[in-house]
Design a protein around this nucleic acid. Sequence first.
DNA 1: CCTTGACCTAAAGTTAGGTTTAGAAATTAC
DNA 2: GTAATTTCTAAACCTAACTTTAGGTCAAGG
Lengths: 151, 151
Amino acid sequence: MAVSEGLAIGALAQRTGLAVSAIRYYEAQGLIAPWRNAGGQRRYQRADIRRLSFIMIAQQFGLTLPEIREVLSGLPGNRTPTPKDWQKISIGLRSHLDQRIDTLTRLRDNLDGCIGCGCLSLPKCALYNPDDRAKSHGSGPRYLMGDAPEA
Amino acid sequence: MAVSEGLAIGALAQRTGLAVSAIRYYEAQGLIAPWRNAGGQRRYQRADIRRLSFIMIAQQFGLTLPEIREVLSGLPGNRTPTPKDWQKISIGLRSHLDQRIDTLTRLRDNLDGCIGCGCLSLPKCALYNPDDRAKSHGSGPRYLMGDAPEA
DNA sequence: CCTTGACCTAAAGTTAGGTTTAGAAATTAC
DNA sequence: GTAATTTCTAAACCTAACTTTAGGTCAAGG
């Protein structure tokens, strides 16, 4: 019976390569919202495979889970997202990625001229002012990187 | 007397912009080695300002503290490093950075064609196979991502 | 001499992104 | 109708890179 009662969490895990615990964690973070069957178990739509795939890709691009949740909120809530819908929200990813590449490239260009030239110890060194603030995902203070003393 | 008994940790913190606790932490991780004065307090050389600066820059580039410790071990231990010494070890940074830029660029090039085209849900999608897979050194699974998200 | 501020150590807390564990209930397989 | 799988929840644990706290010690100034 139940020609299509949706995917169980284990099946979704297999299809995406994610751990079951990770999928539950994403739900806790508001990134995915399954329904429950009569027995209280999570059931997912086929479209959720793509949703999780998107999450994994966005993570590779350096987005945090809150950021990804934000991006996903751009999808329609009342129907299964179409390829066009995915395309639309992926534009944000693209610009995020472009920014990161720019930053790193700028950093690299400054490296050769800066390390070894003597300015390394000066707060005004170009390398100290990554005006983009690539807030590395760790927690902690790092008020230097995210919040340069000024510029 | 003691025309130059070295810098106290607070002075070093001010000069570098780092928190005192962070500098002690770096010592615990083997990244810097001050000596102690008669009273047991840490004393630093002026050259350590540059050492900490290097650490901060390397972090922006995405290196972990163990990796930075490794790079720093390339400096001479018996004398104050010269600009040439710094230049030498910075070559490793440069290649690290080049790799990261390459990876991101490859990812970006795949993005437009991949998201929205329908392959997003397939495990064979190019975005799923960042062939660089830098041995996910983090704890968790992230066996999918080639490298910790870093920044 | 005494007070204030900087410094000391060790241990616990923090954030992100999950995993592991434990005990119980639901499903599936035979 | 069981036995074996899965799944459930809640809570504890994990890493990296630090910070905060607690309880004391050192150093400098008046």
